[in-house]
Amino acid sequence: MEQILANGVYLGSQYAMIALGLTLIFALMNVLNFAHGQMYVIGGFVTYTFYGQLGVPFVLALIISCLTLAVLGALIEKFLFAPVIKGSAREESTMLLAAGIAFLLDALILLIFGEKQRGVPKIVNGVFNYDFRLIMPYDRIVICVLAILSIIAFICLMQYSKTGRALRALAQDRTAAQLMGVNVDRYSMIGFALGAMLAGLVGGLLVTITGVNLGMGGPTSIKAFMMVMIGGAGVISGAIWGGIILGFMEAIGLAVLSQYGDITYLLIFVSLMIFLAIRPQGLMGKPWG
């Protein structure tokens, strides 16, 4: 039981971080960013390049990863999403654009970083072992703590900073925020950059545990969408709850149902369908959007 709980906390914290960036972009711009998983992968590869290949200290590599993704996110928003949102009233235009960007990033990742699985040296050696009842490598504990701290920092940024207030205003009512003097274009770009930066941060953190490869982008996006659907689209607290719930469901399912084969995700998907049929707006979402 201790192991299941520990696995659940660890998985939940990393999933919550993945979902945060996605839900932030959705809340601000009503854009389903299908390229979120690819941004996570780029974050992992940037950290791999600087920390694993060039020997830059891990924290510095992580910062470079965040900055790279923030710049990439800002450029994508300014030159791709902003013109499309302004020029098209149809929501599917941004969805198609996001899917196109995902394919483009996949191709660029293959060209720049290659097809192989990549990994970096462990940031902390050793394994915490409590009588074989609870086993957790120290690097996972460090990454879990860093993920939780990052989530807290993000919440504080959104709650107490001027940028955070502007972003929340934008998410609540774009027109009203504009009338109140919020520079909508600027804060949309900042919000998108922040969402992409979160993907880069979690990619950089997790490359130390899971490594990174070209094919991780699509499945990561799918899991992020599941978490957002569970928690409620566009709601920060919903993304966190969605991540934690999915993490615990996965940890419990893999431990309890292992003798029946790989049915954990089958049951998670069935549960999700039933849940959404009863509460389509998710746990924390509002029925009106």
């Binding site: 299941i4 899971t210 991780m216 499945p219 996965e250 893999l254 292992s258 003798q259 790989d262 995700y265």
Partner: peptide, 19 residues
């Protein structure tokens, strides 16, 4: 011989624990 994992799994600790 009955433990399997999803092809897109990235964290194998929970999967391997029962094995």
């Amino acid at each position: 011989d009955n433990v399997t994992y999803q092809v897109d799994t990235t964290d194998f600790t929970p999967v391997l624990t029962p094995v």
